[in-house]
């Protein structure tokens, strides 16, 4: 692969740039022109990153596309093409639809909570007050701990018997004692199980949302807000018409990275419930892992995992739109 082939992006873009760049000198050979040198320099700088991603993400991705249309299983070196059979098999699977639905619920509910908590926290951190650095430092801790381990801490807090959450709730009288009807079994009641998994995701990510939003808010120049104030805009108007459009791209990027993380992360559900009870908290990555790796049907596992991609499309769409808005 050469750097030149990377430039083979859609022609219109290239043309647009070409038109916008004044043609410098017709006398010199094209490769000696300033613009040509700039391009060579540019593509050289771009090459390492592009190659890395192409070789280590692009190629493996194509390989898993092949898996999804083959009858590959973990122990059989020879796989043959079977068309969309794996997708059909997933489609016919009861559990697949449960997992699909749970993934969407997980994503949306988690996003709402992260948005709410993140925004309010960001607003608070925007204020000037004593001990701000300390508090800011404390609230970002969840984000810095390795997720695979902090989930285990939650597993212990959700324990059906020794749950510290239940102990506290019970002592203040909100719920009954251990063994009573009102003693919540966090990972055992269908709705609670999914909610418990979502809570861990929110706990881990809301500091990140807050930081991203904080970054956005600080980026809005005060003069603009002041100008809007002078124009008699109410707080909500200012927020809606001035702040939001300005930080929209940032919001989108934060949203996208978080969406990807949330959708494709299997560790929370896998370590907390394995998708139980009776599939109530099963999400697509966990199902793909169980079918593809643990039960060994690589092809079907890959097909299930690929269903994540359409789920990611809305996020992608929003981000691309916001990117277009940015000045290039």
């Amino acid at each position: 692969m050469t750097t030149a082939s990377l430039s083979g992006g859609p022609e219109p873009a290239a043309r647009a740039v070409a038109v916008s760049t004044p043609v410098r000198s017709a006398r010199r050979a094209w490769w000696r022109t300033h613009s040509a040198q700039r391009k060579v320099f540019g593509y050289t700088l771009l090459a390492p990153a592009a190659l890395y991603v192409l070789l280590l993400v692009g190629a493996p991705f194509l390989f898993s596309l092949w898996l999804a249309v083959s009858d590959a299983n973990v122990g059989d070196p020879v796989a043959s093409f079977i068309g969309l059979e794996n997708f059909r098999a997933a489609w016919e699977m009861d559990t697949f639809w449960i997992a699909f639905q749970n993934s969407i619920v997980f994503l949306v509910v988690a996003a709402i909570f992260k948005g709410l908590l993140g925004t309010s926290l960001a607003f608070l951190l925007l204020q000037e007050f004593k001990g701000k650095k300390l508090i800011r430092g404390l609230v970002v801790i969840p984000f810095t701990l390795p997720i695979a381990i902090s989930v285990l801490s939650w597993k212990w807090m959700y324990d059906s018997q020794f749950s510290v959450i239940n102990w506290a709730l019970s002592r203040v009288g909100l719920i009954g004692g251990y063994g009573s009807e009102s003693w919540p079994i966090w990972l055992g009641q269908p709705h609670l199980a999914l909610a418990a998994c979502i809570a861990v995701n929110v706990w881990r990510s809301f500091p990140f949302s807050a930081i991203v939003l904080l970054a956005g808010f600080t980026a809005v120049p005060l003069e603009i807000i002041d100008a809007a104030k002078v124009d008699g805009c109410t707080f909500m108007q200012r927020f809606r018409h001035v702040v939001v459009p300005m930080i929209f791209p940032i919001l989108m990027i934060g949203f996208l990275f978080d969406t990807v993380f949330t959708l494709s992360d299997l560790s929370v559900v896998y370590l907390l419930t394995q998708g139980g009870p009776a599939n109530a908290s099963k999400i697509l990555p966990v199902l793909a892992y169980q079918v593809g790796i643990q039960a060994g049907n690589l092809g079907r596992g890959a097909a299930i995992a690929l269903f994540l991609v359409p789920l990611l499309f809305p996020a992608l769409f929003l981000v691309l739109r916001s990117l277009k808005r940015r000045e290039w």
């Binding site: 540019g42 593509y43 494709s264």
Partner: peptide
Amino acid sequence: LRLPGAENIGISIFMTYLVPGIILFL
């Protein structure tokens, strides 16, 4: 550097982040 196709290349690099690890690890 106003490279031709920069926007698309940028987006493509970006999109690779979307591919879940679970289908890449094998």
